[in-house]
């Protein structure tokens, strides 16, 4: 009895320590954004708790061009999510019809395309898009980011399709549904949690993406590039408020939709 109780305490201590470790960096971002700089980055030893309050940097943050980049980031992220679903669903369905060992092999082959550094791929792609007149457009950046996103998307969707009972597909075909109808009106609705997870993870990967964005979209940049540019220009304080403005909605989104961000989906193809 005693032993069980002490174990419970240990768990709570660990929970509190880990929570603080994960929360505190965001708290630091808040402090730099809302506490006068003399207590934060301009002090030799920044205060570990807020000692003042100012909206000065927050106001300055709005002098940074927010709307264009926000729109671009959203545009690209939704495209990346959409393409991941559009190409990922048929590919994952096709793989789910193969022997698991073959499906695993092809999924691994697709993952190999993640291994080459984005920089090396970005330059030839940039050249190609220049020729096509697509350079700096949202679709060109989305297509580039999709290279990294698609293999993981297919892997997640493959797991979702493999988990469906085999007989349901046969039943739908026997009931008169064609192949495409079976995939889109019977199987996809049943795998909707996996589809949602795929879209969300693809969306977040695009939102976060830096390397392709810096090479392929320099004229109309995305939010990560704006943040990077402002830091290198020494615009530290306004950047903190700006970073907070663009980060908080995504955190709220991730918390609200956290049921779709489970490891089960990320490790999807293992179920097969």
């Amino acid at each position: 009895m005693m032993k069980k109780k002490s174990m419970d305490y240990l768990v709570y201590v660990a929970v509190i320590v880990i929570s603080v470790l994960f929360m505190y960096p965001i708290f630091i971002l808040f402090m730099i954004a809302f506490v006068p700089a003399k207590y934060t980055v301009q002090s030799a030893y920044p205060s570990l708790y807020p000692r003042g309050f100012t909206l000065q940097y927050f106001e300055q943050a709005f002098s940074i061009n927010l709307f264009g980049p926000l729109l671009k980031s959203l545009e690209v992220a939704f495209m990346v999510g959409g393409i991941a679903i559009a190409i990922g669903i048929p590919a994952a369905y096709g793989l789910s019809k193969l022997k698991p060992s073959w499906a695993g092999g092809i999924a691994t082959l697709l993952f190999l395309s993640n291994m080459m550094p984005s920089i090396t791929i970005a330059i030839p792609i940039a050249v190609e898009f220049l020729e096509l007149g697509l350079y700096d457009t949202a679709i060109s950046l989305a297509l580039a980011q999709e290279l990294v996103v698609l293999p993981l998307s297919i892997f997640i969707l493959l797991g979702a399709f493999q988990a469906l009972p085999k007989d349901l597909e046969a039943q739908a075909r026997v009931d008169g549904a064609g192949l495409l109808r079976t995939i889109y009106t019977v199987l996809t609705p049943l795998a909707k949690a996996g589809v949602a997870a795929t879209f969300l993870i693809a969306w977040m990967m695009s939102w976060d993406e830096f390397t392709f964005a810096i090479f392929l979209s320099p004229i109309h940049p995305t939010l990560p590039i704006i943040i990077y540019e402002n830091i290198t220009r020494g615009n530290i304080l306004a950047t903190s408020a700006f970073a907070l403005i663009v980060t908080l909605p995504v955190i709220v989104l991730a918390v609200v939709l956290s049921k779709y961000l489970k490891g089960e989906y990320l490790a999807g193809g293992l179920n097969g």
Partner: peptide
């Protein structure tokens, strides 16, 4: 889907 057959599966599907 073009065969005029009905099937009932063991787990009912």
């Amino acid at each position: 889907n073009k065969r005029n057959i009905a099937m009932m599966f063991q787990n009912y599907a």
